[in-house]
Design a protein around this nucleic acid. Structure first.
Lengths: 190, 190
DNA sequence: TTGACAAGACCGTCCAGACGGTACAGTAAG
DNA sequence: CTTACTGTACCGTCTGGACGGTCTTGTCAA
């Protein structure tokens, strides 16, 4: 029961993401996904009884992977580093390797905006966690929103930033984030 | 010949945005738009011969209005203020009054990603203009990306920010933007 | 002033195609 | 015998958009 002959689920999920990217967010058809995954339509519907379940699967896998990546980054990085900094680093890295670009999100959104609620929830929790661990609210707001902007541009395929500019941005953000003990509020309030 | 009995185009455009928001990005049907605009489907197709033209119209109007708003804000604000600051203020205001939330963009994106290229172009030009007028590249990158993040969250309906937090954020961004003559690089580089 | 006529703005209907989903028979592996 | 599919045939629905008709407005000659 836990031994699929080949692991079709992952192939299907990957195929769905591919089709979404190549055919456009509004043209994600089950037939296309099935043929792309090298699976019959019946087989697809066997794994995901409905299109909604497919989308849900996509979202869940995305969240799981992100959580995993954050966990890994957290345990790999020096223990002195705060959560905000690791988050910045992780997001910047993911944006640079834009192969991951989760443009399938638009497909899910087109299908039904409610598919994003798990993501919203996750983000909200992450933000709360960051708020709890970051003394300097100013720095948190600015840096968090900035990397949110980076992700957004990456998602939409914008990104007018040159490599060195992006590097400069990330450096600045990290500086802000790491200076959270230095109470840089005074400087700005003066 | 240039006197439409009633100005249907605007009504149709507004109706399209409404339908996109209420029915979901993937469910923008011409019939729904027509009935929402108080126009028959034939009338709709008369004004916009194809769905693609409708989307194009949406994008063009959006860009025109944004350009207009920026122009207005620029002429209204004190002449001492730099472009980046007015842009920040404008974007923040637009995000606060989220009635404008251009979620129809997702519809256009679902229909065909290419509809966004005019927007991309516009943004790129704006960014270049800001880069030319802002001496402190660091401040520009951080603030621009941060408001980009704000817009993105607003667009997706996220926004975990409380009112005072958003206010704090905007204040911080404005301080960064206005200090562009003060060469605040030294502080960070030290 | 008026009547004819053209163009503009819009209505209602119809249709071909695409898509999600069902049903079912078959099959290869363990 | 069960699991995990394949493959095909099919159904109902929705949607873009083509088409032909209608009403209103403006123009212009007689």
């Amino acid at each position: 029961m836990k031994a699929p002959r080949t692991n079709s689920r992952e192939k299907i999920l990957a195929a769905a993401a591919d089709v979404a990217r190549e055919a456009g967010p509004g043209n994600l058809s089950l037939d296309a996904v099935a043929s792309r995954a090298g699976v019959s339509k019946g087989g697809l519907l066997y794994n995901f009884p409905t299109k909604a379940k497919l989308m849900q699967g996509l979202v869940e896998e995305y969240l799981r992977e992100f959580e995993q990546a954050l966990e890994d980054a957290r345990s790999t990085s020096p223990s002195a580093e705060n959560l905000l900094s690791t988050y910045i680093r992780l997001a910047a890295r993911e944006c640079r390797d834009m192969e991951t670009s989760a443009s399938w999100i638009f497909s899910a959104l087109a299908e039904d905006p409610d598919f994003l609620t798990p993501i919203k929830l996750f983000r909200r929790q992450l933000f709360e966690r960051l708020k709890a661990e970051t003394p300097d609210l100013r720095a948190l707001l600015v840096t968090y929103l900035a990397i949110e902007g980076l992700r957004s541009m990456n998602l939409f395929g914008f990104d007018p930033l040159a490599d060195d500019e992006r590097q400069l941005l990330v450096d600045s953000l990290l500086k802000m984030a790491e200076a959270d003990n230095a109470v840089p509020l005074e400087k700005l309030d003066a």
